[in-house]
Design a protein around this nucleic acid. Structure first.
Lengths: 344, 344
DNA sequence: GTGAAAGCGCTAACAG
DNA sequence: CTGTTAGCGCTTTCAC
């Protein structure tokens, strides 16, 4: 009524108070539920607020109650893969459950930029921060972050004071290999990466454990390492397949390498899954659904890690801040068409 | 010195003032440069601030000066493709140039969630908002956004009051086809999508224009539409290639379809680029560098669109707010190995 | 050139 | 159950 369109002064808590005939304090509490209010007044206040189009100013609220309803998310390379989006997506959803938002920043792997990002996030007084990596690795958290709650996502740290969430790498190796074993394969290769990262070590351990548990010895000629892309998959695939006594199935470190293995198999005239079963890791839709046959894979829980990390941030704020946890998330097998029982 | 480790009270502008022997006002102006200050005091204040580890509270600053140093970025489906990351990345960098950050939220294409996101962003009093789409489309901006500056990224609107930035779709078609023509192809196919989106219309127009300009008539049997994924590419590719009089090159709507065309060619025993040249659009590294041969493509300027959009937001704030622009960004050809001169 | 006072919009502390 | 007062940390009047 009294507000002009457009540039009119924003309606604040005192406008609502005046219109409802109560004090600003009452409005505040009616809105937040922080203290008991006469149900009738409460309803009236809410109606008035609604009618006036009141929307709270989160900065002002936070300035007083020393919260910003904002959590930071600092990652390397946001840009290249869909992973980043999923971690952020999970983080956003979890933040929303606590009426917060996430301020995502990426360092592009540059220490300089990372420091700048930290400063920015700190200046914005984020309530907590998720320190994330796009591929599972071990990190050391910058000291500048000491003042605020930090949770690690897709990363682990030697320092035990941080909660962290990572994929259960060993379980991936176990389940992938187990799935292959389960449909009848006994000669199973492993195309992995040369880098010494937790993901590679964990998956390989799972692979070896599963095979040995099945009473089949590991043939070292069937394990080959290269780069973690299609080219590497091609190389590793060729190294594994281009011999007399070749495996009937290959567990690949990731979907990109699996794509390379498809190409190597194609070059050798091997058909999938007829002559060779293939299983990947990641569940990159761009690849898994594009390959013919569609790739069976194990999905990495990026969304869940993002979600878990900020949930944990809030949980820690609520409980004792020292209750840090190291979570290993289960990874789901996604069956498609690249695995079947071996021939003959 | 006087600060305990950890939970100590944050050092504020008044602490700096006390330590430097000046008033808070002077500190404020020394830091912001908003008014002339004795150079010596200025230096002293800055040094003290540095020593004490002062960092400004952006909320408080914004509360007073009614800015938040925050811009919103509202998109559909942040999650599935690497595009989102690139748009956000560009937006972040542009925001950083104005000492701001971006609050990215995705609606998952759900109107309900979008409204919620808008409300959230508004409650956080973002200084402006980028309304983005992950694939180029025409949108109508929600009325709830009326109060604040809005710029469209990878989207256009019938309403002319919004600035917008999109890829130059026609130029893509022109350049892709022109490149093929340039190396000697005369029989050029087009694998496109069935959806009626600006991207499809623009690229097709560019394709037809280029071909006609070269004096070659378009053969309608060489234009085939399907879904915009590998499967669709396979279908369109087969439709175009499985005939006597087939083209020697195919321009694909995107890299995923190009991947499908590779598969169709492979099925028909056609080699790339020997028997068939292929060109895509998007420059999805996951695909372009994985395919053998590596895919020549036209890169979509997602990073640049994100950057342009928030730059424009700030530019509009500075100049007259009505200075809206509709920008069409040039898209760069990325030559790899899937195009060569036709045989014979 | 500098400072004192006021206040951004809200909630916490202290009344009643 | 409700209101008054103070103040979050800063920048902006207004004064000198």
């Amino acid at each position: 009524m009294d507000n002009k369109l457009g540039k009119s002064a924003r309606v604040g808590i005192r406008d609502v108070a005046a219109a409802a005939g109560v004090s600003p304090t009452t409005v505040s509490h009616a809105l937040s539920g922080a203290r008991a209010i006469n149900p009738e007044t409460r309803v009236r206040v809410l109606e008035v607020a609604q009618k006036l189009g009141y929307s709270p100013d989160l900065r002002a609220r936070g300035l007083r109650s020393s919260r910003t309803f904002t959590v930071g998310l600092l990652s390397d390379t946001i840009a290249v893969t869909p992973y980043a989006g999923l971690i952020i997506s999970g983080a956003q959803d979890a933040a929303a459950e606590h009426e917060s938002v996430v301020l995502a920043l990426d360092s592009t792997g540059d220490a300089q930029r990372e420091l700048l990002g930290i400063r920015t996030l700190l200046d914005h007084r984020v309530d907590g921060l998720v320190y994330a990596r796009m591929s599972h690795q071990s990190v050391t958290v910058p000291r500048e972050l000491d003042g605020i709650p930090v949770v690690l996502a897709n990363a682990s740290s030697a320092e035990s004071k941080y909660s962290s969430v990572v994929p259960d790498e060993q379980q991936i190796g176990l389940d992938a290999t187990g799935h292959l074993l389960g449909v009848g394969h006994e000669r199973i290769g492993f195309a992995t990466v040369t880098e010494n990262v937790p993901a590679a070590a964990g998956r390989e351990l799972g692979y070896r454990t599963a095979i040995q548990a099945a009473g089949v010895p590991v043939n070292e000629a069937w394990v080959s390492a290269s780069t973690g892309d299609a080219k590497g998959g091609r190389e590793a695939g060729r190294a594994i397949l281009d011999r007399e006594n070749r495996p009937t199935a290959i567990f690949c470190f990731n979907d990109e390498m699996a794509m390379g293995v498809y190409q190597a198999a194609n070059d050798l005239g091997l058909s999938i899954p007829g002559d060779l079963s293939v299983i990947g890791v990641d569940d990159l839709q761009l690849i898994t659904r594009a390959l013919v046959p569609n790739l069976t894979t194990i999905a990495l829980p990026h969304y869940q890690m993002g979600h878990w990390a900020v949930s944990q941030l809030f949980a820690q704020a609520a409980a004792e801040p020292n209750a840090h946890k190291a979570e290993r998330l289960h990874c789901q097998l996604v069956q498609r068409d690249s695995v079947k029982a071996p021939n003959g």
